[in-house]
């Protein structure tokens, strides 16, 4: 892809992010307001579902902007030391609603080991989130995602019949069809974080670190 194409892509992503945020402005404000006003449990449940969708939408908007920034050669990304193992724990906590929603269990073999990389913390955090989200999207209710830290790498695996790995293979012009996956790949590439995807015994395995 030449420089001109990349610039066009960046601009497109930026515009998508901007427009989606403009739409969200009209949604998130009233949702917040509604939360303060209603007490009916049924309405609150509806609001929660709406909220989950809004969160996804917000993520889409945010990640569009992040990807635009990441792809933009003119932008300078702030790098700092970050602990991948710590970010995994934070991501799992933040995804609690989705974990409950999909009925998935995430089993983390806790370790005191830190996996320090030099990268942009926001981007890496979003990438870790994306890893779990992608797994959750293809797993059946009741499945378990296992997380291990071994050989200075984080290993996320789940019995997904290889669907997670397939997502990484679906490309158009060498670009993944999923914006989140592009963000994950580009982030890891940008900050030289090694990652690999394998399928063993019908389970996809994502290793990075």
């Amino acid at each position: 892809m030449n420089q001109q194409d990349i610039s066009a892509q960046v601009e497109l992503l930026r515009r998508i992010g901007f427009e989606s945020r403009t739409l969200l402005n009209g949604i998130t404000g009233p949702i917040h307001l509604l939360r303060s006003m209603i007490s009916d449990p049924a309405l609150l449940e509806t609001l929660h579902i709406l909220d989950l969708s809004t969160v996804r939408f917000e993520k889409f908007s945010l990640r569009s902007q992040l990807l635009a920034n990441l792809l933009n050669p003119a932008s300078t990304l702030h790098s700092e030391t970050c602990d991948l193992a710590d970010l995994v724990n934070h991501a799992v906590l933040e995804l609690n609603d989705f974990i409950n929603f999909y009925g998935i269990t995430i089993s983390i073999a806790h370790s005191t080991v830190s996996l320090i990389v030099d990268a942009n913390r926001d981007l890496v955090y979003q990438s870790v989130m994306i890893s779990f989200e992608q797994f959750m999207g293809v797993l059946e209710t009741g499945s378990t995602i296992n997380v291990n830290i071994e050989n200075n790498h984080i290993r996320i695996s789940a019995p997904d019949k290889g669907f997670f790995a397939q997502k990484f293979e679906q490309t158009t012009d060498n670009w993944s069809n999923d914006l989140d996956i592009v963000l994950l790949k580009k982030t890891f590439e940008k900050f030289n974080i090694h990652f690999s995807i394998n399928v063993i015994d019908s389970s996809s395995i994502l290793t990075f670190g």
């Binding site: 945020r21 403009t22 998130t28």
Partner: peptide, 8 residues
Amino acid sequence: FFAQKNDI
């Protein structure tokens, strides 16, 4: 934070 999330 509200503005950051909403501001492009």
